[in-house]
Design a protein around this nucleic acid. Structure first.
Length: 812
DNA sequence: GCGGATCAC
DNA sequence: TATGGTGATCCGC
């Protein structure tokens, strides 16, 4: 049914194509030949584009078909297992939102400008002005592009609570006087004020929500709607009001409107900001119900990252909304890569980044150009040279040098090719780049000889830039080399060499072939080493976009520092302020202060289900000790409760409708569900009550105040356990070494996995799976190569239709 | 590392 | 109506 329109479109395109060609042949009497030719040309040109589109469409359809075939081969048993895994995986990551800070705002400024950019300078100027305003609310705001920015206004809101009215008062200007937009300053233009018209700002507010309108609204947010005076507006202290203020100021200063979204994370904020385009705003309150309510019927296509193709693929699986995305998570875990699946799961749960990553290092730089058909080789070479020059200029502006040159060619049929070559040392000049690009181009020209390349686009790209670490490392090595005497050199030479190597081997490269958890382990080791060397938390590494990563790193660093038992210089991953040389304890206190108030509220609400019990409680005690430990606890907790205190209500419904049998829960959890665990205080509070409490207590407005007080009245008592108790075997471990402890937990965990694997009679494992066999074999000896049950053994995509599909092997 | 593909802006 | 340019990332190889 969904394809009816598409079919029509396709038919029409086919028709167009054929008509064009037939016209050419048959000729048409009585018509202007010139005109016909033109029409034919256009039709032909068009047909090439559409032809390519059709081709791409077919490819996508093929992908979908493959996917469906794979789906058909999934047994119900596999699905049940995946169901279990997908939930536990999620639990393993739940703490990722620990750093959740409410009050993120995505601002989308003047989208209409992108449509009409007649004057780029002005565009930039406006963008700057705008940005000046934004800095008042979050100096660390992240500008995504000229017309889009993310702000974290949490801090602003805290301060704003105590602001006098004057500071939130803005005068309405007419005309285009842009002289000042500071609050509270008098404008001596009475006549203008009298003529002033209210800004368009409140278009998005339904009439019944206007300040004087709705009694309910007035009741709860009495002071939070702007009071429109004769010539001024006083904005309230809430997030909504602050954002209205921002939009008001933008409109006043630039005469352009902006839309905004207020949400607990950037992903949601972005979706929100689209909700009331182009001149409105939308807020999702930072509590789980609000988020879930918003997410419920949200078409996945609305979410950044889900494009046309992904939409179509998921649609083929009957997934259109986020709810459906969540419901199908088990299936998706079997059909998609881990990365994709995590992304899906995050979307379906309304999770997103809560950190504004700094502008990461650029990965590549390129120049490309479209033109009318070019078939002469000489022209192509000279164009290539030109592009290389342009690129070299751009590179010079940023002082970049790279090792990989890529050319991009699009022929008149819109088929795109890229050809790359990586050299051993960095290049940056036009000549250097052209020397490489030329060869690539020549290869392509030669390949088609004697036919010329009929190009409509050419591009040149440089990547594999030498990063800061490389530079530092080089420096360090050189300095070390220069400084070290012969004696020292011979003594440390060996070690240095090894260290250098490891330093260059970043986690991903290092463990490409390893399992997900192997990889994580490698990362940790790598980070430890790195931290050891630097003796400080690497700020850069903390500035990743993913709170999960950040927290993990933070933890790893802490873990390391704990081991080394030294006072160090820490940088708080939340506020990004350097904390000087303080003790770990003091640093933890600081991080707590940064995290606790809003984030705990946020976190708890995001994840506590009204039936959930103890899972949240154990976070605080361990968050600064070991995240890897924490994962296991989460996992274990999930296992223990056998999905009953499940992640959210969707899960709950499922569970209710289909009571879990031991079989569906799986051997591992069945085993563990019998165990008690001292680490988890069970039912130490009534979650229902907690939920109500936090719901009524916490809103953006009073987040700030709650943060300033140390105790959180509605928080359940948090049991702090310093002894390391294995969450699996429930035995206190006589070690304070977290590495050892983690090893122990791994072994405990893998007992379960091994059992499970046995149950699945792995005896007939194909030779392809030696990796798995080896790993599980080693598991019993050493914990360093363990895998958590239920995870893919490969970090890479589980290839559809591949006989090497790890899960196939597992379940065969 | 390469090449194709997808996605965002 | 005709279909851009830049950059990032993922995935399979």
């Amino acid at each position: 049914m969904h394809s009816t329109k598409e079919k029509n479109d396709n038919n029409r395109d086919d028709l167009l194509l054929r008509m064009g060609l037939n016209d050419n042949k048959a000729g048409m009497e009585g018509l202007d030949k010139e005109k016909i030719n033109k029409i034919i040309m256009e039709a032909t040109r068009g047909s090439k584009f559409y032809g390519n589109e059709l081709k791409k469409e077919k490819q996508v359809n093929q992908r979908i078909e493959n996917m469906m075939q794979q789906k058909a081969q999934i047994t119900s048993q596999q699905l049940r297992k995946a169901q279990l895994q997908s939930t536990s995986n999620y639990y393993a990551r739940r703490f990722g939102v620990r750093a959740a800070m409410p009050g993120f705002i995505a601002k989308r400024l003047c989208p209409q400008l992108t449509i009409v950019p007649p004057n780029f300078d002005k565009y930039q100027a406006v963008s700057r002005e705008v940005k000046e305003i934004l800095a008042d609310y979050d100096p660390n705001f992240m500008a995504m592009s000229l017309d889009e920015a993310y702000l974290n206004i949490t801090k602003h809101l805290q301060e704003r609570q105590n602001w006098p009215e004057d500071k939130r008062k803005y005068f309405i200007k007419t005309g285009n006087s842009l002289e000042n937009d500071k609050p509270g300053e008098e404008v001596n233009k009475v006549s203008e004020q009298e003529r002033s018209i209210p800004p368009l700002l409140f278009n998005d507010i339904p009439p019944d929500l206007h300040p004087q309108g709705n009694p309910f609204q007035a009741n709860s947010e009495e002071q939070n709607n702007p009071q429109i005076l004769q010539n001024a507006i006083v904005f309230g202290t809430s997030a909504e009001e602050a954002v209205k203020e921002i939009r008001f100021r933008i409109e006043q200063k630039t005469t352009l409107t902006a839309s905004a979204g207020i949400a607990p994370n950037t992903m949601l904020a972005k979706v929100c900001s689209d909700k009331n385009k182009p001149n409105g705003q939308y807020q999702i309150l930072p509590n789980r119900e609000a988020v879930m309510d918003f997410i419920k019927d949200l078409p996945i296509r609305k979410v950044s990252g889900i494009g046309k193709v992904t939409e179509k693929m998921l649609k083929a699986l009957g997934i259109i909304t986020c709810t459906e995305l969540y419901q199908q998570r088990a299936l998706l875990s079997l059909l998609f890569s881990e990365t994709s699946w995590h992304h899906f799961l995050h979307i379906s749960l309304g999770l997103g980044s809560t950190l504004l990553a700094r502008d990461g290092d650029r990965k590549s730089m390129s120049v490309e150009r479209t033109f009318s058909e070019m078939s002469k080789a000489e022209e192509q070479y000279s164009l290539c040279q030109e592009l290389c020059s342009e690129l070299a200029q751009d590179l010079q502006k940023e002082g970049l040098k790279g090792r990989t040159v890529t050319i991009k060619l699009k022929n008149v049929n819109f088929e795109v090719k890229t050809r790359a070559s990586t050299v051993s040392s960095v290049v940056s000049t036009a000549e250097e780049i052209f020397a490489i690009a030329k060869d690539l181009l020549r290869t392509e020209i030669d390949a088609d000889f004697p036919h010329p390349l009929r190009l409509r686009l050419m591009g040149v790209r440089l990547s594999s830039f030498s990063n800061e670490e490389d530079k530092k490392q080089q420096q360090r090595s050189i300095i070390g080399f220069l400084q070290a005497g012969n004696q020292a050199l011979s003594a440390t030479g060996h070690m240095l060499e090894k260290t250098d190597k490891d330093q260059f081997l970043k986690p991903l490269e290092m463990s490409q072939k390893k399992s997900f958890f192997d990889k994580k382990r490698s990362e940790r080791k790598w980070t430890q080493q790195d931290t050891f060397k630097c003796e400080a938390v690497d700020t850069q590494s903390l500035q990743t976009s993913d709170s999960f990563q950040v927290l993990k790193k933070m933890n790893e660093n802490l873990e390391t520092s704990e081991n080394s038992n030294k006072s160090q210089i820490f940088t708080c991953p939340i506020c990004f302020r350097e904390q000087g040389s303080i003790s770990l304890e003091a640093f933890n206190k600081h991080v707590d202060a940064c995290l606790d108030g809003p984030s705990i509220n946020e976190d708890r609400k995001m994840f506590s289900c009204s039936h959930a019990s103890s899972t949240e409680v154990n976070r605080k005690e361990n968050v600064h000790h070991s995240f890897s430990l924490h994962e296991k606890q989460d996992y274990e907790t999930h296992q223990k409760h056998s999905g009953i205190n499940s992640v959210d209500c969707a899960e709950l419904v499922e569970t209710k409708g289909n009571p879990p049998k031991a079989e569906s829960v799986g051997a591992l959890s069945d085993k563990h569900s019998k165990e008690e665990c001292a680490v988890f205080p069970r039912e130490s509070f009534n979650t229902e009550q907690h939920y109500q409490n936090s719901f009524s207590t916490v809103s953006l407005e009073d987040m700030g105040s709650s943060q300033q007080e140390s105790p959180q009245p509605y928080l359940p008592e948090v049991i702090i356990t310093h002894a390391l108790v294995c969450p699996i075997c429930n035995l206190e471990q006589k070690t304070s070494d977290l590495t050892l402890f983690n090893m122990h937990v791994d072994i405990c965990l893998n007992k379960g996995m091994i059992q499970e694997l046995r149950k699945d009679s792995l005896a007939n494992q194909p030779t392809k799976s030696t990796k798995s066999t080896d790993t599980s074999g080693q598991v019993q000896k050493t914990a360093t190569k363990t895998k958590r049950p239920g995870m893919y053994s490969s970090s890479k995509k589980v290839k559809p239709n591949s006989p090497r599909h790890t899960l196939d092997i597992f379940f065969k």
